[in-house]
Design a protein around this nucleic acid. Structure first.
Lengths: 221, 221
DNA sequence: AATTCATTCAACATAATTATTGAATGTAGA
DNA sequence: TCTACATTCAATAATTATGTTGAATGAATT
């Protein structure tokens, strides 16, 4: 694959970027890094993968320009290179959603249909949050919540949703969100809350998209 | 790579789409299909690749939902599945452009710097076309021009640009475009016209983006 | 200096991707 | 039916990607 003419060389470069997205583990890393910068070990724990494996995936993504890294003492923190990476990820997801059948089926097999979760748009939620007519819950782990969350959102990790569901007022609507549009935790949270008879919906996507849209968010002290 | 839990299955689906983009030949096919539907053989001729090879790449893209196909007599015509494919391609290119260094260098090695070609935006060109103050030339091959081109654009394939350059009025500005933002033909056209002392610029991208932006275009009879 | 710990590197085995070849399939027309 | 032709399929070889292991590197701490 020797690159002689510029056209070939360009396509080769573009293909390298696409290849960096072309692996499920790396996509999961992108989704986690979209929540905020992370060390190699922190990511390895979240994905339940060997550290060396994660390190190599991160290096591959760095070569392609998806992430950047910075040493901080003994740790190396990786972060998404820029917002374009999330735009590209969203575009790839969109193609997958429109095509497959398979994506629908996968989600449907575990939860109800995606539509039945009645996703609420960013704009609508933002408007209703002003009225104070909705309880917003962040179902991600506390460390991700700490790096940034919707204004006024309560952090209730999925493991605690059953126990906490007693605390909600029955009539009041609850909106759950997590890492992104296909993050399964918010699907499960809504399903669990509905089993308890509560009015629950999903935010259509997650915190990264909220931030990318320029909406305000809070960071824990 | 057995897919047990839904999260893994989703990432796997998304990765399949990204992988379909992760090959230079397939990206070139996407760019050609963005000009209009094509048969396998027509694409094979344009890429100078064996037919069986092109057929397999197209089938891989079809499995991933990038293209659809339809038999028409002895031929099988492939087309882009939807506009989302171009959006994803543009997003991938954007990541590559922002990262590499390499992309800049490749273009710079053959032409002047990309900036020196003074790309003109779609909006600006559309405005100036109303005034009639600019000559627009389409430097793609005639068959692609026939499938659709900017209103009033003259088709001058790259091979004829030298000869035709005599025809232009020296003072009048010429804008060249071709398949997309990195299509090398428009770079070469501008360079050739400038060597003749003409005022030439590039459209920032190509016909597919023009159409995707909802601007009007012409189709040959 | 020695130790600890996070990360990276190097080497290896396995799996996936790619290009190539020739045969098979399917369609149109003689 | 026979032929021509576009496309697909099947088999192969070469290349590249991936995951695993243990050793090497780099930075902080003792």
């Amino acid at each position: 694959m020797s690159i002689s003419n510029p056209k070939q060389a360009l396509y080769e470069q573009f293909a390298q970027v696409a290849k960096a997205f072309g692996n499920p583990q790396r996509l999961e890393l992108v989704e986690h890094l979209a929540q905020g910068p992370r060390s190699v070990e922190a990511l390895a724990v979240k994905l339940s993968l060997p550290i060396a494996n994660v390190s190599q995936h991160l290096q591959a993504m760095r070569r392609a320009g998806l992430v950047s890294s910075e040493r901080e003492g003994k740790f190396v923190n990786y972060r998404l290179a820029d917002n374009g990476v999330l735009v590209a990820f969203a575009a790839i997801r969109s193609v997958a959603e429109r095509h497959s059948a398979e994506v629908e089926r996968v989600v449907r097999g575990w939860f109800d249909r995606r539509d039945d979760m009645e996703p609420i748009s960013r704009e609508e939620l933002a408007a209703r949050m002003v009225d104070g007519a909705v309880t917003v819950i962040d179902v991600r782990p506390p460390d991700e919540y700490a790096l940034g969350h919707l204004p006024g959102a309560i952090n209730i990790p999925l493991s605690e949703i059953e126990a906490m569901s007693e605390e909600f007022q029955p009539g009041r609507e609850v909106v759950a969100y997590c890492r992104g549009p296909w993050c399964v935790m918010s699907f499960e949270a809504v399903a669990a809350l509905r089993r308890k008879g509560l009015r629950a919906r999903r935010l259509e996507d997650g915190l990264p998209e909220w931030k990318a849209a320029g909406l305000s968010f809070e960071v824990s002290a």
